[in-house]
């Protein structure tokens, strides 16, 4: 038998249909499709690759000490999913996001998304019409690079890349990757820059020659801080720059519902008796916050601190004066 897919499926069925753990030699002798004239070393390599592929497909293969060698069987509790009750609307959601993202090269996990919705039985033709075009620049490269870095995040392997910053300065960076996030057409890496010994954010489209440390692939290069949370690392446009300060923005009653949409998990909001709402959020740049308020308006304005209010008032006065 030469078809590797047949061999893998046979191995999956063999390990899943027995309560008795099977050794590698058992599998070799069982006629699953391993070449009979194969030497021991080649067989072990092929057997390990097959197990890795089945594990990647979702089979949880237990390793049992069988004396002189290990033995293997499928752990049914860890392997099989219980059926999930989904509403029709939830099925439509899953089909919409899958239809949109599976074929978008800037979405780094298209193959796995297709596989996930297949397992949930919600994939396929039909469903709502949807499409996605996530990448502002070089979508295919972004998707590939973001995928490689997301893997390095999980395996905790250091990545090295050439990086060109906004000032057009290029240098090689070596970073322990803590997480990745997407915003406004680009994927970003957050991690500890080994040279600067500081946590930094890097735009993945600005990277070249990305290299994930290939040595000892199963051994992590670093430990991620226990309190790291990518949701905190992703910031709003006015949360870059100087020292942080608290700012309060008021939303008029007819736009108070927009706080949830605009806050993206940052800050706290409170609804007032008149139906308006105040949002208190950390900011680092008064002018950029003032600009953001205008851009997202109308229906919201700065309350405090004075620096933001002054930026807003002075800026709008400049606009009115320059357009007389």
């Amino acid at each position: 038998m030469s078809d590797p897919v047949e061999r893998m499926v046979n191995l999956a069925l063999y390990l899943a249909s027995t309560h008795t753990p099977r050794t590698a030699e058992d599998c070799r002798a069982a006629g699953l499709g391993y070449p009979e004239d194969q030497d021991d070393a080649a067989f072990i390599r092929m057997f390990e690759r097959d197990k890795d592929a089945l594990r990647a497909g979702g089979l949880v293969i237990e390793v049992v000490d069988a004396g002189e060698s290990d033995a293997y069987r499928v752990d049914p509790d860890a392997t099989y999913a219980r059926p999930v009750d989904l509403t029709d609307a939830e099925r439509s959601v899953l089909r919409a996001v899958a239809t949109a993202f599976v074929d978008d090269p800037a979405f780094p996990f298209g193959d796995e998304l297709l596989s996930a919705v297949s397992k949930l039985g919600t994939s396929g033709t039909g469903g709502p019409l949807a499409s996605a075009d996530l990448g502002r620049t070089a979508p295919e490269g972004q998707g590939i690079h973001a995928r490689a870095i997301a893997e390095a995040v999980q395996t905790r392997k250091t990545v090295t890349f050439e990086y060109t910053n906004a000032a057009d300065q290029t240098r090689v960076r070596s970073v322990d990757p803590y997480g990745v996030f997407f915003r406004d057409g680009s994927w970003y890496l957050v991690g500890r820059d080994r040279d600067a010994d500081a946590v930094r954010t890097y735009a993945i489209p600005r990277m070249r020659d990305i290299d994930v440390n290939p040595s000892r692939p199963r051994t992590p290069d670093f430990e991620r801080p226990a309190d790291f949370d990518i949701r905190k690392a992703e910031r709003l446009p006015f949360q870059y720059g100087g020292e942080p300060f608290p700012a309060t923005v008021r939303f008029l009653p007819e736009t108070a519902w927009r706080i949830d949409r605009l806050a993206r998990g940052h800050g706290d909001s409170q609804t007032l008796p008149d139906g308006s709402a105040v949002w208190t959020v950390e900011a680092n740049d008064a002018r950029r916050l003032a600009s953001w308020i205008v851009d997202e308006g109308p229906g919201l304005y700065a309350v405090e601190p004075d620096s933001v209010v002054e930026e807003l008032v002075a800026g709008l006065k400049r606009v009115a004066a320059s357009h007389e």
Binding site: Y80, A81, P83, V97, A98, F101, P108, F109, L113, A116
Partner: peptide, 16 residues
Amino acid sequence: RPLRLTLGEARALGAA
């Protein structure tokens, strides 16, 4: 029975 989602599949679904 259907198999559980792998790490990669759970990551993809979560991101979507």
